[in-house]
């Protein structure tokens, strides 16, 4: 469990990135912090592994105040996945994945064996192990990033807009993979994004943030969409602007789901699919 306890972060120039933020992130679940850029979501994420130290309040991992844990060992037990993967360009894929175990003093043989297992877990061909990051596609790099985040088998995985820089198809693919991996591993994931669709797709708990990391609403995807707390949340979700206001329309080809602008968003799946065999 991760707990933010009245956390604040202000800078010497007077800007206040986070004001009095309190939240509990349950273990083994995915919490998505979603908000526009500059709302303080990344600052919150980085407080967990002390990339940023709060100016007031405290962050807890189970019963430990992170301020009492030296940053370097703390970071080595928390997985971190960032936008553009942040891979080390001078290390082969396998060594990138093995980075944290190697820092922790695991033997190279063991670290590499583990890296190969992880490559399979995240859906990468193990034949790519000896390539350099530059030789991979954006989506593949991001998979390496996820594998690296998981290498030391951390309980907590911090993901900072990890799929923000890949094209929509690859992005959807990576989201599906993350859900599959999470069903297997049950990590405590903190996921930061500005994309509400991504938040709804991945989050067990969705936290919609306004400026200064004010919690506009926290709840499940269903709660957030069915009962938006206020105008701000409804607006952020795109309710009232049409994108999430869906209707059914009968067409000769079947029932379509259309958005508020009348554009098809998908089709209604047949609840009793015809036997095809």
């Amino acid at each position: 469990m991760i707990r933010f306890d009245s956390v604040g972060k202000s800078y010497p120039d007077g800007t206040e990135a986070v004001r009095d933020f309190t939240l509990e992130l349950p273990s083994g679940r995915t919490t998505v912090l979603v908000g526009s850029s500059g709302c303080g979501k990344t600052t919150l994420l980085r407080m967990v592994n002390r990339m940023v130290d709060p100016t007031t309040g405290s962050v807890w991992i189970d019963d430990d105040n992170v301020a009492d844990i030296p940053p370097v060992p703390l970071r080595r037990r928390i997985g971190y996945v960032m936008q553009n993967a942040g891979l080390l360009p001078h290390r082969k894929v396998i060594d990138n994945i093995a980075t944290v175990p190697l820092l922790n003093g695991v033997s190279k043989t063991d670290a590499h064996r583990r890296a190969l297992e992880l490559m399979e877990l995240v859906g990468l061909e193990t034949t790519m192990a000896n390539r350099y990051p530059d030789q991979l596609s954006g989506g593949q790099q991001q998979r390496v990033g996820v594998a690296r985040g998981l290498a030391a088998d951390p309980n907590i995985l911090l993901m900072d807009e990890p799929f923000g820089a890949v094209d929509p198809l690859v992005r959807a693919d990576l989201q599906t993979e993350l859900l599959r991996i999470q069903r297997e591993l049950h990590k405590t994931i903190v996921f930061v994004t500005h994309d509400i669709a991504e938040a709804l797709a991945l989050g067990d708990q969705i936290v919609i943030l306004a400026k200064g990391a004010r919690i506009a609403q926290a709840g499940t995807a269903q709660q957030v969409v069915a009962e938006p707390a206020d105008e701000f949340v409804a607006d952020f979700l795109g309710l009232g602007r049409g994108t999430l206001d869906l209707h059914l329309r009968e067409t000769p080809g079947g029932t379509l789901v259309v958005d508020g602008h009348g554009r098809p968003a998908g089709r209604l799946a047949d609840p009793s699919p015809r036997a095809e065999h």
Partner: peptide, 21 residues
């Protein structure tokens, strides 16, 4: 900057980050 940031986040100490990254 992204590489510096990610290596710090992975848990490199400042000295090991200099020599290894």
């Amino acid at each position: 900057a992204p590489v510096r940031l990610s290596s710090t986040a992975l848990g490199y100490s400042p000295a090991s980050r200099f020599w290894q990254v």
